[in-house]
Write a protein that binds this DNA or RNA. Structure first.
Lengths: 208, 208
DNA sequence: TGCTGTGAATAGTTTCACAGCA
DNA sequence: TGCTGTGAAACTATTCACAGCA
């Protein structure tokens, strides 16, 4: 399935396409052309065709793409055709909000563990999850198994958490702390950093 | 100050550099070379020098960059040398977490308004902010003035909120809803979309 | 000497334009 | 006819390599 090195940005766009296709599918749209999909996703239509071409031929010439089929293929490419087990580190404002966020469960993402260092929080429940002490992180992860660690701690503790996740054998990290985490090359880190986005907005608002 | 069209990605990196410089400054580091800063930020040193070259010459040959000076310049370039007034739309789990998030106030970002449609929430207080009804959005924004609207509503209402913000004259939008918002060209939209990041993680974990 | 600033070379990405096929 | 798939062209971004200067 993976012929060449796929650009990261292509993967991000596939995810956007998949999202829009899911919407179309929900509205019972059966067929879409690259031009229409491109318009909805804010890209050039050749872009979409090129992105898809990395992985195969999913369209029908003269017709377009069958929404359900393409959605299925994209979800398979992205690896979304399975359930992903998440572990949350840091149940502060943001962490708790993530736990309660409906979108996760809807999309095949499921939080199976939550850790915090605050004795006041340990043992309390959010949704159906009991908050465990960070000290038990390695043991608990070993026990239940998680695919992705979600770091939502204070900036200063983020690196330490990442190290513990790595030690526990976790290979994927979603990091909400605005710090540059260091980890071995085989560990994948994605940063969600809204302060960077805010800064970019300020730049644009300042210059134009 | 703005000679040519600056790539968006350069702006993002400047923000990362600024963050690291702030850290260095806090630790009383006076001087840093592009090689050292590059290492800390995970980029090539020529990249840093090129990024800076868009805006001027900030270094000293044979020496490097004075941390305080460069930080000051970067903050000026990004427009962070003023206070930015934010308005929150949607005080759900995520919205409330953002309001309580310390980082914002620390960095010159300040929430001055919060709106929600839920009658149960309207009139209640989070921190020092009273939650206003969405219906009053245009009036209230006119009254107090905000620079950036932060959308943290349900996906289905995000576009409507964006439209109202635009009508109220807001030119910057930080959107947390995983939808592609439409707005006039002079309105700047930045998306914070952690589901896209999660999808990218899944792809990487699936393929390697 | 040891750094920055930058032209030139390289690498990567997007768009065009059209052949090929249902 | 009207779309996809794709080679080629255009554009953009990154890295190299070194001149220039404190």
């Amino acid at each position: 399935m993976k012929y060449a090195k796929i650009p990261e940005i292509t993967i991000h766009r596939l995810s956007v396409y998949a999202r829009h296709l899911a919407l179309l599918d929900m509205n019972n749209v059966k067929l879409i052309s690259s031009v229409n999909l491109a318009e909805a996703c804010g890209v050039n239509s050749a872009q979409i065709r090129k992105d898809l071409a990395y992985f195969g031929e999913f369209g029908v010439r003269g017709i377009g793409y069958y929404v359900k089929d393409l959605l299925f293929e994209l979800r398979k490419i992205l690896g979304l055709n399975k359930e992903w087990r998440l572990g949350l580190i840091g149940v502060g404002n943001l962490g708790a909000a993530l736990l309660r966020h409906a979108l996760f469960n809807k999309q095949g993402y499921i939080f199976v563990k939550a850790f915090d260092q605050d004795p006041e929080k340990i043992g309390t429940t959010i949704g159906t999850l009991v908050i465990d002490p960070v000290e038990k992180m390695e043991d608990e992860i070993e026990k239940v198994g998680i695919d992705i660690g979600v770091i939502a701690t204070q900036d200063q503790t983020a690196q330490e958490c990442a190290d513990r996740l790595v030690r526990a054998g976790v290979q994927g990290v979603l990091n909400f702390a605005p710090v540059q985490l260091k980890a071995p090359a085989d560990v994948h880190i994605e940063n969600v950093d809204f302060t960077l986005r805010l800064d970019a907005l300020c730049y644009k608002l300042t210059t134009d």
